[in-house]
Design a protein around this nucleic acid. Sequence first.
DNA 1: GGCGTAAGTAATCATTCAATGCCTTCCAAG
DNA 2: CTTGGAAGGCATTGAATGATTACTTACGCC
Lengths: 190, 190
Amino acid sequence: MNTRMSADDRRELVLQAATRAFAQGGYAGTSTDKVAREAGVSQPYVVRIFGTKLELFLEVFERSTLRIRDAFAEVVDDPTFDPTAEDAREQLGLAYTALLADRDLLQVMMHGFSGGGHEEIARSARACMARIFETVRRTGWSDDEVRDFVAHGMLINVMLAMRAPEHVDEDPQIAALAACAFGDALEFLT
Amino acid sequence: MNTRMSADDRRELVLQAATRAFAQGGYAGTSTDKVAREAGVSQPYVVRIFGTKLELFLEVFERSTLRIRDAFAEVVDDPTFDPTAEDAREQLGLAYTALLADRDLLQVMMHGFSGGGHEEIARSARACMARIFETVRRTGWSDDEVRDFVAHGMLINVMLAMRAPEHVDEDPQIAALAACAFGDALEFLT
DNA sequence: GGCGTAAGTAATCATTCAATGCCTTCCAAG
DNA sequence: CTTGGAAGGCATTGAATGATTACTTACGCC
């Protein structure tokens, strides 16, 4: 039997569990029961906290993508950051690869992006993408440069979702792509 | 009541319907019943044809991504194609934007890529990615150039999945990103 | 023209899933 | 001590869903 907990603390705990669960299965592929078991709580309780599975997912998605946006913002808004420097792009990229330590965030983002089945998820995804684009834009880079940066991020997400890093030894093509997509960060990915 | 049809023809028809259905909802978010209704056929019949929902999805995914690969191959293997030309990248990009006419192919690819929940889907996704990467590589471009090209494709997929083209007028950031992601092709996207 | 095989469906089943309602238990204030 | 509110589980339910089985109907071939 779990000890009692303040509602806010429990809510936070369930959110973390849901992030893990949704990162694996996406919205449709994850049951509230799975989230509940992951959180060590009864299934009806998780839907009671969030009202609806959709609302839970939206909250997980929103907070995950905001976390990602913040990681960029921290670099971009740093006064010592020089967007015109030779390695500026690499520097911002580091902020992203640092997120690889918690793959769940990126996977949740990915699932939200491709979960366009529900209009509400698609809307939230657009808002998230807009926020991230705006943040990277603050570097002053050209729109094409920003686009290339964001696109590279999407490739990383996809490669991560298909578990490419864990299977580089099975396919030389995947190995080559993973090498130039993840760069030095590849070695840290299992 | 529908007229009888040869098994192969019916199979093809169901595959097309399934492509439409899966493009919308992804693997987990699409029921075999939905596919059946889309195909104008009974639900037990579609699972009888393909044995299992997973096998159906894998076949839809495989054929969709092969179609995409072929679109690239047609350009790359064309003897008149000059990979060192100034507009070579744009030329190959055209092969991709041409696929936008049938958004379903790209959406199915997207869902397969992010559907890493099932190991079998993830494996198929890696194989698909490997094939596409290998094809674009045949241009002789550097791996980094190929990576950038593929990454741009992923961004297009994501933007499409979140229905960005239909909502450019709601968010200036999305509008800017869509403008430089889709280029001239944007006007043809509703 | 009848017969065998293939095309297709209706009925049904066992699960799974999201959601609701009611009950229990703990803690804090009076 | 007791009482009330909040934390949280339990039982349940109705709808979906994937899959199986048995049955029916059309068509090609002799």
